[in-house]
Amino acid sequence: MNLRLQAIKAQAGALALVSPALALLGLLFFYPIVLLFFTTLEGDNIGNYAKVVSSGTSMQVFFNTLRIAVIVTVVDLLLAYPLAVYISGLSPTGKAIAFFLVLIPLWTSQLVRTYAWMVLLGRQGPINNILVWLGVIDAPIRLANSEFAVVAGMTHIMLPYMLLPIYNSISKIDHSLFDAAKGLGAGALSTFTRVLVPLSIQGVLAGVSLVLVLSLGVFIMPALLGGGRVPVIALLIEQQAGSFLNWAMAGTLSAVLMVIVMITFLVIKFLTRMFVRGRIDVAST
C-alpha cells in the first residue's frame, strides 16, 4: 500500500479517537468563551476594557490577586521542595503514609477545609488559645478575616499541586548521581545547585505554574477567610455579576484574568525551554 495513504489513514484514526473529547471541549468550553467575549463588547464596544484598564480599583485588585498568588506559590515552593526530597528518601511504606497525609486535603471539600481554617483561626480557636496560654499575647488577636488567613488557607490547599510534580521529578533522579557528585568533590551546596535543582527544575516549574494559575482564580478562601478585607479578582467578578447584574463588566474582568493566566503560562513555558535546553528529556527515561 502507498505509504502516504497509510499515513493519512493513521492520522484519520487518531482524529477519530480524539474527536469526542474535542467536541465536548468545543461545546462546553470554547463556545462559552466566544460567547463571553461577545458579551463584553455589548453596547459599548471595547469601552468595558478601557474602563477596567483605566480604573484604579480594578487594576489594584488585579495586582493584589497576583501578589497573593505569588506569595502562596513561593511559600508552597519553600514547603514542598524539602518535603519532596524527604519523601523521596523514605521506605515504600513511609512513602505510602506520606502521600496519604498529603492527599487527604484533596479528598475533602474545599468548603469544609475553609470552615476548618475559620475554626482554627477564630478568636476562641486553638491557635489563639495556645498563644494566650503561652503568654505570647495577652488577649486573642484577629487571625481570621485577614490576608494572613487567606494566604494560610490557600497555601494549605495548593500544597499538593506543588508537591506532586516536584516529587515526581526528584524520584526519577538516579541516586548514583548524588554519589558521583560527592565522589567528584562536590559539597552539599554544589550537589544541590549543580545536580538536584537542575534535574528537578521541570517539576518545580510545573508545580509553580499549577499553583500560580489556580491561585489567580480562587474564590471560596478569600470570600470566607478574608472577611471582605481581601479583594481578589474572583470576588470582583462575582460582585459585578451577582450584585450589579453587570454581565458585560463581569465578562470583561474574566477575559482580562484569562489573558493574565495565559501570559503566566507562556512565561513558564519559556523558562522551561530555557532550562531544559538541548538535553534529551530526563523525564522520558
Binding site: D174, S176, A180, K182, G183, G185, A186, L199, V282
Partner: peptide, 18 residues
C-alpha cells in the same frame, strides 16, 4: 568521599544527564 581523591566509574556510569 570528596576528600579521598578517588575516581570512580559507576555500574550505570552516573553521568549527569543535564
Amino acid at each position: 568521599a570528596g576528600k579521598r581523591q578517588i575516581g570512580m566509574v559507576f555500574q550505570h556510569y552516573a553521568l549527569f544527564p543535564h
